[in-house]
């Protein structure tokens, strides 16, 4: 399991716009870099990030090798109701990781 840093508000008002910041530990090997022997290292990136909330995909992004190592993403969503917000990263070599946070909407 890769280390994940997530900033999600735990409590918020209904209808407010909340900012979410997510960072995951990952090399994001581009596939364009030679190693010490001069051989190109195989691509190993996260190519998709998805945020699900209140029964729907509310944000999703396709990453390319131009995204820096330990990919960071910030975006906003509208707080509609209390419940889990899940974050999924998918990548090369079968990489997949999902984290869930609970937000309380008042």
């Amino acid at each position: 399991m890769a280390r994940v840093l997530l900033r999600v508000p735990t409590m918020t008002e209904k209808g407010s716009v909340i900012e979410i910041r997510a960072l995951i530990q990952h090399v994001m090997e581009t596939g364009y870099r030679p190693n010490a022997e001069g051989v190109l290292q195989a691509r190993d990136i996260i190519w998709r990030f998805t945020c699900r909330y209140d029964g729907e995909v509310v944000f999703n992004a396709a990453f390319s090798p131009a995204i820096a190592a330990n990919p960071f993403i910030a975006f906003t969503i509208i707080a509609t109701q209390s419940g889990p917000v899940s974050f999924t990263w998918e990548g090369d070599n079968g990489f997949t990781q999902t984290e869930t946070r609970h937000i309380t909407v008042t």
């Binding site: 716009v17 909340i18 900012e19 909330y53 209140d54 729907e56 509310v58 944000f59 992004a61 995204i67 820096a68 990919p71 960071f72 993403i73 910030a74 975006f75 906003t76 969503i77 509208i78 509609t80």
Partner: peptide, 9 residues
């Protein structure tokens, strides 16, 4: 449902 058209990376 995004609230704002905002993205940072």
């Amino acid at each position: 449902r995004s609230g704002r058209a905002f993205l940072a990376t």
